[in-house]
C-alpha cells in the first residue's frame, strides 16, 4: 500500500504485518550472537534471510572465553554457526566461505592462516575446514577432536556428544596426517583400539568419554 502524500498522524503509517516479527527475531539473534561488528553481521544476517540460507546465529549466547594467548576471535560457537551454514554441501567454495567468515566479524588473516595449513584452490571439503578450524581453537589433537564432536553431534548440548566412528576416524586421520610429530602407525593403533570400543558398546558411535578425559590427557 503506498503511503498518502500528506501525513497527518501516526495512524496513517502502514506497518507491514510481518515486520514486527522480523525485527524481533533479528534482535534476539543479535543478543544471542553478540557480533563484534554489528553492521557487518546485520548485512550477513539479512542476505542469508532473503536467500533462505541458514542464518548466522549462535544457538545460545557464548561467554567470552578467549585469552590473550589464543584470542583470534574464533570460538566453538562461531564454528558451529559456520557448520550450520555450510554443512548441507560436501564442498564449499572458498569465496563464499570467506564472505560468511567476514559476516561473523572474524579477521580474514585468520581465515588465510587456516587455509595455509592445507592449501587448495577454490573449493574445499567442508569437513576438512571444520577440522582445521577446530584444531586452530588451540590445544592438542584431542581437544580439537572434542570440539569436532561437540559441533557435529546430534545429541543435546552437554550430552555424550556422540558422532559416527567413521567420521571421527576420517577427521582424526586427516588432522594427524598434517601433524609431522604423529606417525601413521601410531594413528592406526590408536584408532583401532577406539574402533573396538565403539563397535562393542555403542553401535558404531563414539562419544567424548571414549577418548577425552579432561585437560590432563594429551
Amino acid at each position: 500500500m503506498p503511503l498518502p502524500d500528506t501525513m497527518f498522524c501516526a495512524q496513517q503509517i502502514h506497518i507491514p504485518p510481518e515486520l514486527p516479527d522480523i525485527l524481533k527475531q533479528f534482535t534476539k539473534a543479535a543478543i544471542r550472537t553478540q557480533p563484534v561488528d554489528v553492521l557487518q553481521w546485520s548485512a550477513g544476517y539479512f542476505s542469508a534471510l532473503s536467500r533462505g540460507d541458514p542464518l548466522p546465529v549462535k544457538d545460545r549466547i557464548e561467554m567470552p572465553v578467549a585469552t590473550q594467548k589464543t584470542d583470534t576471535g574464533l570460538t566453538q560457537g562461531l564454528l558451529k554457526v559456520l557448520h550450520k551454514q555450510c554443512s548441507h554441501k560436501q564442498f564449499v567454495e572458498l569465496k563464499d566461505l570467506e564472505k560468511k567468515w567476514k559476516n561473523l566479524c572474524l579477521p580474514v588473516e585468520k581465515f588465510r592462516a587456516i587455509l595455509e595449513l592445507d592449501p587448495c584452490d577454490d573449493k574445499m571439503e567442508w569437513i576438512k575446514f571444520l577440522a582445521l578450524g577446530c584444531s586452530s581453537l588451540g590445544g592438542t589433537l584431542n581437544t580439537a577432536m572434542k570440539n569436532v564432536c561437540e559441533i557435529l553431534t546430534a545429541d543435546p548440548e552437554g550430552g555424550p556428544a556422540r558422532i559416527p566412528f567413521d567420521t571421527f576416524s576420517l577427521i582424526y586421520q586427516y588432522l594427524a596426517s598434517l601433524d609431522p610429530e604423529i606417525s601413521a602407525s601410531e594413528t592406526e593403533t590408536y584408532l583401532a583400539t577406539l574402533r573396538e570400543k565403539s563397535e562393542s558398546r555403542k553401535n558404531g558411535m563414539i562419544g567424548l568419554s571414549d577418548f577425552y578425559t579432561g585437560k590432563t590427557s594429551g
Binding site: 507491514p16 515486520l19 522480523i22 534471510l49 532473503s50
Partner: peptide, 19 residues
C-alpha cells in the same frame, strides 16, 4: 526506512539497506 519505502520483500530490502 522500511516504513518509509514499504517494500514487498522486507528481508531483501533489509539486506540491500545494510549492504
Amino acid at each position: 526506512e522500511i516504513l518509509r519505502e514499504q517494500p514487498d520483500n522486507i528481508p531483501a530490502f533489509a539486506a540491500a539497506y545494510f549492504e
